[in-house]
Computed example of a mutant assay.
Amino acid sequence: MKIKGKAVRAKKSKGQRVKNELKALGLIDEGRMVGSDEDYVYVPVLERVPDKYEVVEKELETREKRKGFRELLVERFGEKGAKGVLSSYDVVGDIAIVQVPEGLRAHEAEVGELLLRGEKKVNAVWKKAGGREGEFRVTKLMHLAGEERSETEYVENGVRMKLDVRKVYFSPRLSHERKRVLGEVKEGENVLVLFAGVGPFALEIGKACPHAKVVGVELNPEAIKYFEENIVLNKLGNVEAVLGDAQKAAEGEFSGWADRIAMPLPMGAEEFLGAAFSAAKPGCIVHFYRMVDRKGGVEVLKERIRKAAEKAGREVEFIFEKEVRPYSAATMQIVIDFRTRQSDNP
Results as ranks from 00 to 15, higher is better:
1 M>N: 10
1 M>G: 15
5 G>H: 01
6 K>S: 15
12 K>Q: 01
14 K>F: 07
14 K>G: 00
17 R>N: 08
18 V>H: 12
19 K>P: 00
21 E>C: 09
22 L>K: 12
28 I>R: 11
30 E>Y: 02
34 V>E: 00
36 S>G: 03
38 E>G: 12
40 Y>C: 04
42 Y>T: 02
48 R>N: 15
54 E>I: 06
58 K>D: 02
58 K>R: 15
60 L>T: 04
62 T>N: 01
67 K>W: 09
70 R>N: 07
73 L>C: 01
77 F>T: 01
81 G>R: 08
83 K>Q: 14
85 V>E: 06
85 V>C: 04
90 D>S: 11
95 I>V: 13
101 P>Y: 14
101 P>L: 10
103 G>D: 15
107 H>A: 13
109 A>I: 01
110 E>L: 09
114 L>S: 04
116 L>S: 08
117 R>S: 09
119 E>T: 00
126 W>A: 00
126 W>M: 00
127 K>V: 00
127 K>E: 03
130 G>K: 06
131 G>M: 07
134 G>H: 06
136 F>W: 14
137 R>W: 05
141 L>Y: 08
141 L>K: 08
141 L>D: 04
141 L>E: 04
142 M>P: 03
145 A>W: 00
147 E>L: 15
149 R>E: 11
151 E>Q: 13
153 E>C: 13
154 Y>I: 03
155 V>P: 03
155 V>S: 12
155 V>E: 15
157 N>R: 09
161 M>T: 12
165 V>I: 14
167 K>R: 15
168 V>E: 03
170 F>L: 06
170 F>T: 07
171 S>Y: 03
171 S>D: 06
172 P>G: 09
173 R>K: 07
176 H>P: 05
179 K>G: 10
179 K>T: 11
180 R>I: 06
181 V>E: 09
183 G>A: 01
184 E>R: 14
185 V>Q: 05
187 E>V: 00
193 V>F: 02
194 L>F: 07
198 V>D: 12
198 V>K: 08
203 L>Q: 13
205 I>G: 07
206 G>M: 08
207 K>L: 15
207 K>G: 12
209 C>P: 04
212 A>W: 13
214 V>H: 08
214 V>R: 07
217 V>L: 09
219 L>E: 12
224 I>K: 12
232 V>L: 14
233 L>S: 14
241 A>Q: 13
243 L>E: 15
245 D>C: 09
250 A>W: 03
252 G>T: 11
256 G>L: 13
265 L>V: 02
267 M>T: 08
276 A>P: 03
277 F>N: 11
281 K>G: 06
283 G>Q: 12
283 G>S: 12
289 Y>D: 02
298 V>Y: 02
299 E>D: 11
299 E>L: 07
303 E>T: 11
303 E>A: 09
304 R>C: 02
304 R>N: 08
309 A>C: 10
310 E>P: 03
314 R>D: 02
320 F>K: 09
330 A>R: 13
330 A>P: 01
330 A>W: 05
335 V>I: 12
338 F>T: 07
345 N>T: 11
